[in-house]
């Protein structure tokens, strides 16, 4: 799950990236509003974390611009400004949540999950498909009532497949999802992870669509 992180403080951004990666997200960092607008235009993100005090002062306009152009990605504002006035402006402009620094990472992660859940019209963090039971909160995975241990990347990939069942995900998409823009992906890295997933689950669960990508078969086992 890719997250667009817009934060101009280098140290803070570094810490958040480390933590978000560890929690199974793929954050991409932008330090200005203009960069963020460009990034959102060119790639898909599940969510945006936005600092209001950006160097180009573009944050609130960015929210409005996104909403006007029909970008429905949840926007979580994370800022040091705690005045009610700013909160109201941000939420009324189209932000989905507002958190004031300093924040506890666990709370931030929980709120990210809540926003994604709402976006994907789910009521809980448990995805059930094709005999797989994946808990997005504690990363617990079961296949046909048997516990399965997943690596971080495997979890990230499986989560994407389960969020978009029966849809073909291209290799490039999957690479971006699990490695980000500047990830040092080897040519067959994705294949290796898919292979491992198939080994842990069942080979037929993830179908290869030749020349296009991969797809999760939701009716597996039926």
């Amino acid at each position: 799950m890719r997250i667009l992180l817009v934060e101009d403080d280098e140290l803070l951004a570094k810490g958040m990236i480390t933590r978000l990666k560890r929690l199974g997200y793929q954050p991409e960092l932008c330090t200005t509003g203009k960069q963020a607008a460009l990034a959102a235009q060119n790639s898909n993100f599940a969510l945006m974390i936005l600092d209001l005090g950006l160097p180009d002062g573009f944050a609130l306009d960015l929210i409005r611009q996104f909403r006007q152009s029909g970008v429905s990605m949840p926007i979580l504002v994370l800022t040091a400004q705690d005045q009610l006035q700013t909160k109201l402006i941000a939420l009324n402009s189209g932000a989905d949540d507002y958190l004031v620094k300093p924040i506890d990472v666990m709370e931030l992660e929980a709120r990210i999950r809540v926003l994604c859940r709402r976006q994907q019209q789910r009521t809980d963090d448990s995805l059930q498909l094709a005999g797989i039971n994946l808990n997005l909160n504690n990363h617990h995975c079961q296949f046909q009532q048997q516990d399965v241990t997943l690596t971080r990347r495997e979890f990230m990939l499986l989560k994407e497949f389960m969020l978009k069942p029966d849809r073909i995900l291209s290799r490039q998409q999957l690479e971006e999802l699990s490695y980000g823009w500047d990830g040092d992906t080897e040519s067959n890295a994705i294949e290796v992870h898919i292979h491992n997933l198939r080994k842990k689950l069942a080979p037929e669960v993830i179908k290869t669509v030749r020349g296009v990508g991969y797809m999760l078969v939701s009716h597996y086992g039926h």
């Binding site: 140290l11 803070l12 810490g15 933590r19 040091a80 705690d82 300093p102």
Partner: peptide
């Protein structure tokens, strides 16, 4: 102004 450095401390300490 104090919140940003505080966030940095908290986040990295948790990390």
């Amino acid at each position: 102004e104090l919140r940003t450095p505080l966030s940095i401390l908290q986040l990295h300490a948790q990390n």
